[in-house]
């Protein structure tokens, strides 16, 4: 069966080529979607990392009060982590940031002492949860742990529009991406099945002869399914190879556009999983399409 499958693959050169091209398109689309998805996911992670809510305290807020608020924030299920920045750390960071800016440093000297406020950096687990975290902060209990208001301002209001807009864009991107991916995948699978059907159309006389000399369905199917699997293997190798220059070229533009994220790096890091998935999919696709296409001619 292996032997005649391989011989059939080799001798029907043009037909094999057509089937391989059709599958190559399918697998390239799937492969590109896989790399793209991994890339998009990690891009989203980075974006989420950058969004936070910062709580600025009044100058005379006491450290124990701040720490108590930090603790109660940490008990909230929506909160991922809370980072406490003391006034001294804020001052250091400010100096560091403006170390080349003489005017700013002079202004700082002019004010005297430490004009900066302590702050809490709050990161929620999901973008959508910032809303409820900020509601919690606006409630009375959170605002007055020691009986007086120690919170100067919450910058959520300023970030709110940005966060919300980002949230909608991201969920849209996900949904549209998934729809496009699914449509493309279905289309290319249909193209593959049809190409293999056509390839088998040329073999229908052969199949009827096989049946007439007393071959059972499995004996007829075997070599053709073997052939289908071989189309899958060759296409998977080609598709994985094609993605190399494609991602390499895209890598540069993504690096500058997405701030350091390089799609090529994902391709290289994820290559094993990617290749095995493509290989598995290709073999399955080849066998299933051959099987489906064959059943039409096996009714003699």
């Amino acid at each position: 069966m292996m032997r005649s499958g391989f011989i059939g693959f080799w001798r029907n050169g043009t037909v094999s080529l057509a089937a391989i091209f059709a599958m190559l398109i399918t697998l390239s689309v799937v492969g590109a979607l896989m790399v793209g998805n991994v890339f998009l996911s990690s891009f989203l992670e980075t974006v989420k990392e950058k969004v936070d809510v910062t709580l600025y305290f009044t100058i005379d807020a006491q450290e124990p009060d701040i720490l108590a608020l930090k603790k109660s924030l940490e008990t909230l299920p929506e909160v991922n982590r809370v980072e406490y920045v003391t006034r001294e750390q804020a001052l250091l960071a400010f100096r560091e940031r403006h170390k080349d800016d003489a005017v700013m440093l002079a202004a700082l000297e002019e004010v005297g002492g430490n004009p900066l406020r302590a702050s809490l950096n709050i990161k929620a687990k999901e973008l959508s949860q910032y809303e409820s975290v900020s509601k919690f902060l606006e409630g009375d209990t959170a605002l007055s742990p020691g009986g007086e208001n120690i919170i100067e301002k919450v910058n959520y209001r300023q970030n709110k529009i940005v966060i919300e807009r980002m949230n909608t864009i991201l969920s849209y991107t996900r949904r549209v991406g998934a729809t496009i991916a699914l449509t493309l995948a279905i289309m290319s699978i249909m193209v593959t099945v049809n190409t293999i059907s056509l390839a088998l159309y040329t073999a229908r006389d052969e199949i009827s002869v096989m049946k007439l000399v007393g071959a059972g369905n499995n004996l007829v199917r075997g070599p053709f399914m073997m052939q289908g699997a071989m189309y899958g293997i060759v296409s998977a190798i080609l598709a994985a190879a094609l993605l190399y220059p494609a991602t390499f070229w895209l890598g540069r533009s993504t690096e500058s556009a997405f701030g350091g994220l390089n799609i090529f790096a994902y391709y290289v890091a994820d290559f094993g999983r990617l290749f095995l998935s493509l290989l598995g999919l290709g073999i399955a696709l080849g066998i299933v399409s051959s099987f489906v296409a064959l059943s039409r001619y096996l009714k003699v």
């Binding site: 005649s4 011989i7 059939g8 001798r11 029907n12 006389d205 052969e206 002869v209 096989m210 007439l212 000399v213 007393g214 071959a215 059972g216 004996l219």
Partner: peptide, 19 residues
């Protein structure tokens, strides 16, 4: 009705494989 892509040997051996 010989199989065009098979040699004389293979055409005959196919019927035997089928059996």
């Amino acid at each position: 009705r010989l199989l065009p892509d098979k040699t004389a040997f293979e055409n005959i051996s196919f019927a035997m494989e089928a059996a």
